[in-house]
Each structure stands twice: as structure tokens, then as C-alpha cells.
């Protein structure tokens, strides 16, 4: 999920051949719901989301939230997979 438009996400998904949902939240409604707004950090000074990952199990219970302290750094896939161990 990002503050990018649907068109931007469509272009990216096509280019990278993503087969998962790439959600657009240009109004930052959902991003605000989780408190991940980063004010004025966009290229044009617009608000965007900070890098973060959230994992929820089948019952909707949030089991893990990670927001890095450095926006160049992303949570690595292996770290996410480790957090999902035990999920079925």
C-alpha cells in the first residue's frame, strides 16, 4: 500500500509482474488509520507512507508491526517470513 495513484500502481505491477494486491491510498485514509503518514516526504513535498510492515493472522489479530527508523531501510523479506512461521 502506498500513496501512489492506481495508474502508477498498475504501471508498476505490469513492469514488475506482481501477482499480489498493490493498493492505492492517495488520500492516505488507510495510512492514517495505521499511523504511518510521513508528512512532506514525497518528491513534490506531498505526504506519503513511511516504510512499515504489518502481519495479521487468520482471525485478524495483528501479530507483528515493524516500522524502520530509517526510510532507506526496508524490512527484509526473510524477516517477514520468519514472523509468519507457524502460520498455516
Amino acid at each position: 500500500m502506498s500513496a501512489d495513484s492506481v495508474d502508477d500502481n498498475r504501471r508498476l505491477a505490469k513492469k514488475k509482474r506482481f501477482n499480489f494486491h498493490l493498493l492505492a491510498d492517495p488520500e492516505l485514509t488507510v495510512i492514517d488509520l495505521f499511523g504511518f503518514r510521513h508528512q512532506g516526504a514525497g518528491i513534490t513535498g506531498n505526504d506519503i507512507a513511511r516504510p512499515a510492515v504489518l502481519i495479521a493472522n487468520k482471525t485478524g489479530q495483528i501479530t507483528w508491526i515493524a516500522a524502520t527508523s530509517n526510510w532507506r531501510v526496508r524490512v527484509r523479506p526473510e524477516t517477514i517470513l520468519k514472523q509468519t512461521e507457524g502460520f498455516n
Binding site: L23, I48, P51
Partner: peptide, 21 residues
């Protein structure tokens, strides 16, 4: 349109990213 309830009974990994790709 995507609703979070569409993923009921599923494990979810929700990744927030900065975008501008």
C-alpha cells in the same frame, strides 16, 4: 475496490511503502 474483509480467514502481510516508483 479492495476491502480488508475480502481477506477474512487469511493470513495478511500488509506492506506500506513510500512509492514513487
Amino acid at each position: 475496490a479492495f476491502l480488508s474483509s475480502d481477506l477474512a480467514e487469511k493470513n495478511i502481510v500488509l506492506v506500506f511503502y513510500r512509492g514513487h516508483w
